Simulated scan of single mutants.
Amino acid sequence: MATAKQVKVPANKTTYVGVHGTFSSDTCSGGTIPKLSLGRKPKHGKVTFKPVGGKLSEGPCKGSYMRGTGVFYRPNSGYRGSDSFSVEYQYNYFEGAAKLTHTSRSYRIEVQ
């Protein structure tokens, strides 16, 4: 089981906490953008998804542009403390793949 991504966020603000996309390190090109859905909902906030894009900051394809779906979290007004949620996503492992790959990612949030 993968370790949850831990993120510290400020109270009362929507904060970018992660991104999901596909990318080939062989060709340094982006793949299809995964379809995201909320698995386990947060108890103390709201999660939204938005299209994002940018250049990779590390690895063999540093500087290559990638598109994906950003994950944003906003705590309930006045809330401080811990929260968690999971994001489920499906994507073609490669362009033209016969079936979709399904996986999930958990997030642990600390609202400060």
Rank of each mutant, 00 (worst) to 15 (best):
G63F: 02
K5S: 15
S77R: 11
N12F: 06
P60H: 06
D83L: 08
Y79T: 00
E58L: 12
K50S: 06
V52I: 09
V52N: 07
P10H: 08
V9I: 11
K43L: 11
V17W: 11
T15C: 09
G63E: 00
G68S: 08
G30I: 00
E58C: 07
M1Q: 14
S64P: 04
F85M: 07
S77H: 11
T3W: 10
T3Q: 14
A4C: 15
S57I: 08
E95W: 04
C61A: 12
K99P: 03
A97P: 01
E88W: 03
R80D: 01
S29D: 00
Y91R: 06
L36H: 05
T15K: 11
K50G: 02
R105A: 15
F94A: 13
D26I: 01
E95G: 12
V17H: 07
G53D: 07
P51S: 01
Y79K: 14
G45S: 04
T15M: 14
P42C: 09
K46H: 14
E58Y: 13
T3H: 15
G96D: 02
V111I: 13
I109T: 01
F49H: 06
L56A: 14
S24T: 00
L36N: 07
S37Y: 01
Q112R: 15
N92Q: 15
V7W: 12
L56Q: 09
K55T: 09
P60R: 13
P51E: 01
R67P: 01
P34I: 00
Y93S: 15
D83R: 10
T27Q: 11
D83M: 11
T101R: 14
D83Q: 08
S77D: 06
G21H: 06
Y107R: 06
G45W: 03
V71T: 13
K5I: 14
F49Q: 04
V52T: 08
H44I: 02
F85W: 06
R108P: 01
G31F: 01
G21F: 08
S64F: 01
R105T: 13
V9A: 03
T101C: 08
S77K: 15
L100Q: 15
F23Y: 14
T3N: 15
T22A: 06
T69Y: 03
V71F: 12
T14Q: 15
V111N: 04
Y73I: 04
F23S: 08
E95Q: 14
S84T: 00
S57L: 11
H20W: 10
S29M: 06
G54V: 00
F72G: 02
L56M: 13
C61V: 00
G18M: 05
K50C: 03
G78H: 10
K50A: 12
A97F: 04
G30K: 02
I109N: 00
E58D: 10
G18L: 05
P10D: 10
L38H: 04
V111W: 03
D26R: 09
K62H: 09
V52K: 13
G18F: 07
R74T: 13
V9N: 02
K35E: 10
M66H: 05
E88L: 11
T27I: 03
K41Y: 11
R105G: 14
R108S: 15
G31R: 02
R40H: 13
Y73N: 01
F94L: 10
Y65P: 00
E88Q: 14
V52Y: 07
T69H: 04
T69F: 03
H44D: 04
G18N: 04
Q6W: 05
Q112E: 09
L38M: 11
K62Y: 04
G21D: 07
